[in-house]
Structures are given as structure tokens and as C-alpha cells.
Amino acid sequence: MFAVLKTGGKQYKVASGDVLRVEKLAADAGEKIQFNEVLMVGSTVGAPLVDGAAVQAEVIDQIKGEKTISFVKRRRKHSSKRTRGHRQQLTLVRITDILESGADKSGVKAAVGASSAPKAAAAAPAAKKAAPAAGADDLTTINGVGPAAAKKLNDAGITTFAQLAAVDAESFEGAKVKAEWVEQAKELAK
């Protein structure tokens, strides 16, 4: 049985026991990972993906690819030359199993690219910060109040339209408050 999986922007046709060099994944040597983006299993072609199918693999090692040389030379007098080399970060994996269904119940960690892992971890705390407190109004509905100004107002203790309507724009010390915001907040607080 074979499968076609997608990782790192590339597609690979794999069978059980194959060893692959793929774009760097956020996994250590010896870990079991699972590729959930399966495009084809045996002769079953999916719409974008085959539902419930996955390919499980074991990480063998984190390696670097062969060096590629980039050489640039400009013609004529006083020309310049530049030589640069690059070695791509790769992950060596051995395909252990191809699942046609039940991939979500396997309990194996999904394969995530190395550049995606820090972004996903940083996105979770950011989502918690962005959520307004219970009973708070969305201050960004006021013209001129963006996310940054709404955060400053929340830090100053203003979370509702009624609280903003009660503020004196000239004498308020907590954050910069415009008179137009106060007028709009009075309308919205009704």
C-alpha cells in the first residue's frame, strides 16, 4: 500500500518502511509523528485530502542537506563577484504505518514544520489577551478607536461605553481620550 502526503510545500509518494528527507519538522530524534495532509491512499483520491487518513513516521535525525552554491558576477570593469553557500535544514523520517481511517484517534503528535511551531505557541496567549472581559463592550466600534487604543483604554479601567461616556476628555489621565469618542460612547451606551 502507498500514500501521497504533503509536507513542507512538497508531495511525497511513500510506502511503509521508506526513509524520507523532508523540510525541518519540530520533533526530536526517536519521536513518532503523524502526517495528516494525505492526498491519496492506494487508489483512493481525496477531494483536497482523504478524510481520516494519515501517515505515521518515526524521526530518525535532524540533518542538513547538501551545500548549494550561489555565484553572482557582474561583467565589465570594476565588476563584483559574490559567492554564497546554503545548507537546508532537513528531517530524516522513516515511514512506519499508513492509516486509511481513524487518524484522529491514534494519539500520535501531528507533524508541524519548525517555523510554524513558535507561531502556534505564541498565537494561543495572544488570543487570550485579545478577548475582552465578560460584560465589556467592544470599544473598537467607536470611530477612531483601534485595537491599540482599545487596549490602552482597557488598561486604564475603561471597558464599557458607559464608563467612556462618563470620562472628561480634557482631564482624564489614564489614556488619551478624544471628545468625539466620549460623544459616540454616550450614543452607544443608551
Results as ranks from 00 to 15, higher is better:
residue 34 Q to K: 15
residue 35 F to I: 12
residue 35 F to R: 10
residue 36 N to Q: 13
residue 40 M to K: 15
residue 40 M to Y: 08
residue 40 M to T: 10
residue 41 V to C: 03
residue 42 G to A: 14
residue 42 G to Y: 03
residue 45 V to Y: 07
residue 45 V to M: 14
residue 45 V to D: 06
residue 46 G to E: 12
residue 47 A to P: 02
residue 48 P to H: 09
residue 49 L to W: 02
residue 49 L to Q: 08
residue 50 V to A: 04
residue 54 A to C: 14
residue 55 V to R: 09
residue 56 Q to F: 04
residue 60 I to G: 07
residue 61 D to G: 00
residue 61 D to L: 03
residue 62 Q to W: 05
residue 63 I to P: 07
residue 65 G to C: 10
residue 66 E to R: 13
residue 67 K to P: 09
residue 67 K to T: 08
residue 68 T to L: 14
residue 70 S to A: 13
residue 70 S to E: 12
residue 72 V to Y: 05
residue 72 V to E: 11
residue 73 K to T: 11
residue 74 R to T: 12
residue 76 R to G: 11
residue 76 R to I: 09
residue 77 K to D: 07
residue 79 S to L: 10
residue 80 S to E: 14
residue 81 K to Q: 12
residue 81 K to Y: 08
residue 81 K to L: 05
residue 82 R to L: 13
residue 83 T to L: 15
residue 84 R to M: 15
residue 84 R to I: 12
residue 87 R to M: 08
residue 89 Q to G: 07
residue 90 L to D: 04
residue 90 L to C: 04
residue 91 T to V: 06
residue 91 T to F: 02
residue 94 R to T: 14
residue 94 R to V: 12
residue 95 I to A: 06
residue 97 D to M: 10
residue 97 D to L: 06
residue 97 D to A: 12
residue 98 I to P: 06
residue 98 I to V: 10
residue 99 L to R: 14
residue 101 S to W: 01
residue 102 G to K: 07
residue 102 G to M: 03
residue 102 G to D: 03
residue 104 D to M: 01
residue 104 D to F: 08
residue 105 K to L: 02
residue 106 S to L: 02
residue 107 G to F: 01
residue 107 G to V: 00
residue 108 V to L: 04
residue 109 K to M: 05
residue 110 A to F: 00
residue 111 A to S: 07
residue 112 V to P: 00
residue 113 G to D: 02
residue 114 A to P: 00
residue 115 S to E: 04
residue 116 S to R: 11
residue 121 A to L: 02
residue 121 A to C: 01
residue 123 A to C: 01
residue 125 P to L: 09
residue 126 A to T: 02
residue 126 A to M: 05
residue 127 A to G: 01
residue 127 A to N: 01
residue 128 K to G: 00
residue 128 K to Y: 00
residue 128 K to E: 05
residue 129 K to R: 09
residue 129 K to Q: 02
residue 130 A to Q: 08
residue 130 A to P: 01
residue 132 P to Y: 00
residue 133 A to Q: 08
residue 133 A to K: 11
residue 134 A to D: 11
residue 135 G to I: 03
residue 137 D to L: 10
residue 138 D to C: 04
residue 139 L to Y: 09
residue 140 T to N: 11
residue 143 N to H: 15
residue 144 G to E: 13
